[in-house]
């Protein structure tokens, strides 16, 4: 009887197993790299209906974050009303075509169609006020918005990102006066880790790490 398989076929099962292992490794690495928010979300910088520049208003003029995001320390994040823009732009650049959308919104009362950049899933119950009132600076999650012409997501805002901080708040807290100062450093960086631990203890910072802390 003639040989159905050449002799080299004896190695084939092993070769196939090795190949599948290699492919498995590559697929795992690719999923880790491409299917996590570090790749899918970081860098999202949508076109906004008004070319508002935080670099100009915060970096150059020195406006406080809270001038526009005025409910941040009581109720949570809010995109400012068009009246907020008109506080100054009823006189400054009052006829600028770039601000036509704002003027129309101010007159009609219809909202400006800003594009949501940092989107959380519905099952995440995140509250800004508790974070800014307990020493977590804006820059911690939003990056240096004061240097951005177009708001860009710079942190993954994945669950791992949240938990890194919830498990070790002493590495991320800053003084109350520095929370809205995007150029400030954390207490751990400026005064050392011991001072940061004391701050966490004094301010009774106990970030939840159980599921129900953030998911309800």
């Amino acid at each position: 009887m003639a040989k159905l398989f050449p002799k080299s076929a004896n190695k084939l099962p092993v070769q196939i197993i090795v190949y599948l292992c290699v492919v498995g490794c590559i697929a795992t690495a690719a999923a880790q790299y491409y299917m996590t928010p570090k790749y899918t979300r970081v860098g999202y910088a949508p076109m906004q209906p008004v070319p508002y520049s935080h670099a100009k208003h915060v970096g150059e003029l020195g406006l406080d974050c809270r001038y526009c995001h005025s409910t941040i320390d009581t109720a949570g994040a809010a995109i400012p009303t068009s009246q907020t823009c008109m506080n100054c732009h009823n006189q400054l650049k009052a006829a600028s075509p770039a601000l036509a959308v704002i003027r129309e919104s101010y007159q009609t009362g219809n909202p400006v169609p800003w594009v949501h950049v940092h989107v959380m899933p519905s099952f995440v119950y995140f509250d800004h006020s508790i974070h800014v009132n307990r020493g977590i600076g804006c820059v911690e999650c939003h990056g240096k918005v004061s240097e951005m012409d177009v708001v860009t997501q710079v942190k993954p805002m994945s669950m791992g990102f949240c938990l890194d901080c919830h498990r070790a708040p002493e590495l991320h807290v800053r003084e109350k006066a520095d929370v809205f100062n995007l150029d400030s450093g954390t207490i751990a960086a400026t005064q050392g880790i011991e001072a940061a631990r004391t701050f966490v203890k004094d301010w009774n910072i106990k970030p939840p790490v159980s599921c129900s802390g953030c998911h309800r």
Binding site: K38, G76, S122
Partner: peptide, 29 residues
Amino acid sequence: RNRTFTKPPMDVFPEWLFPGMKYQPKLTQ
């Protein structure tokens, strides 16, 4: 990683394929 883009982020686990509670009909602010 770390490039900027203007299109909405890709959804790795899209709702039609993995139905869940990621986008609930409830109203938030």
